Amino acid sequence: DVEPGKFYKGVVTRIEKYGASINLNEQVRGLLRPRDMISLRLENLNVGDEIIVQAIDVRPEKREIDFKYIP
């Protein structure tokens, strides 16, 4: 289970102007929005990149997770 405040290694699977889709595994994925990137710009991400993200909002009833990137 993903817990708010914990850090996870994820893989960038899609990049859109509203954010990047991050997969932690086949069943768990979430969104990294541009506003939640401290020192990383969306255009510097590539599909397949592995990054460390922090879960900031977990809504299991909607199967949604928001991530934050902290270098």
Rank of each mutant, 00 (worst) to 15 (best):
D49S: 04
I38G: 15
N46H: 14
I65C: 08
S21Q: 15
E26L: 10
Q54R: 05
D1G: 14
G19V: 05
E26K: 13
V53L: 07
A20C: 07
K68W: 05
E61C: 09
V53W: 01
D66F: 15
G10H: 00
V11Q: 05
L42H: 02
L45N: 00
A20I: 12
G5D: 05
D57A: 15
R29H: 13
Q54A: 05
E3H: 13
L24K: 00
E64I: 11
E3T: 13
K17W: 15
D57M: 14
R63P: 09
V47R: 02
R29P: 03
S39R: 11
V11N: 02
R59I: 05
T13C: 09
R33S: 07
L32N: 01
I38R: 07
V28E: 04
E61N: 11
D66T: 13
E50R: 11
N25S: 14
R63Q: 14
M37C: 10
V12I: 12
E26G: 13
K68S: 11
K62P: 06
P4N: 10
V2W: 06
D36K: 03
D66E: 09
V28Y: 12
P71Q: 07
L24S: 01
N46F: 11
L42R: 02
Y69F: 11
A55Q: 03
Q27S: 14
S21K: 09
D66L: 15
L32F: 04
R29K: 13
F7N: 05
Q27K: 13
V12R: 00
I65H: 04
I70K: 05
F67I: 03
D1Y: 14
V58M: 05
I38M: 12
D1Q: 13
I70P: 05
V28F: 10
F67L: 09
Q27D: 13
D66K: 12
A55N: 00
L40T: 06
L45Q: 00
N23M: 15
V2D: 01
R59L: 05
K68M: 13
E64F: 11
V28C: 11
V47F: 01
I56T: 08
L32C: 07
L24G: 01
D66N: 11
I65T: 04
L42K: 03
I22S: 03
D36V: 05
D49R: 01
K17F: 11
D49G: 01
A20H: 03
G48K: 00
E16N: 15
R29N: 12
P4S: 10
R63N: 15
I65F: 07
L45D: 00
G48E: 02
R63K: 14
I70T: 11
Y69M: 05
A20S: 03
I56S: 05
F7Y: 10
D57W: 11
G5K: 04
E3N: 06
K9W: 13
Q27T: 14
G48F: 04
I38D: 10
G5E: 04
N25Y: 07
T13P: 00
D66Y: 15
V58S: 05
Y8H: 00
M37I: 06
T13Q: 05
G30H: 03
V11M: 09
L24N: 02
F7P: 04
A20E: 02
D57T: 13
V11I: 14
T13V: 11
M37Q: 04
E64V: 08
D49M: 13
P71L: 08
Y69N: 03
P60V: 13
K9Y: 08
G48C: 07
I38P: 06
E3D: 05
F67W: 07
Q27A: 13
R33P: 04
V2C: 08
V28D: 07
R41L: 12
Q54V: 12
V53G: 01
E64A: 07
M37S: 04
M37K: 02
I22E: 00
Y8P: 00
K68F: 08
N25P: 03
F67A: 02
Y69L: 06
E26F: 12
R33A: 06
L40Q: 05
P71M: 09
R14Y: 07
I22R: 00
V12C: 04
R59S: 07
D1E: 12
V12D: 01
A55H: 01
L24C: 08
F67K: 03
L45Y: 01
M37G: 03
Y18C: 09
S39M: 12
E50C: 14
L32R: 01
L40P: 01
V53T: 00
P71A: 11
R41Y: 09
N44T: 09
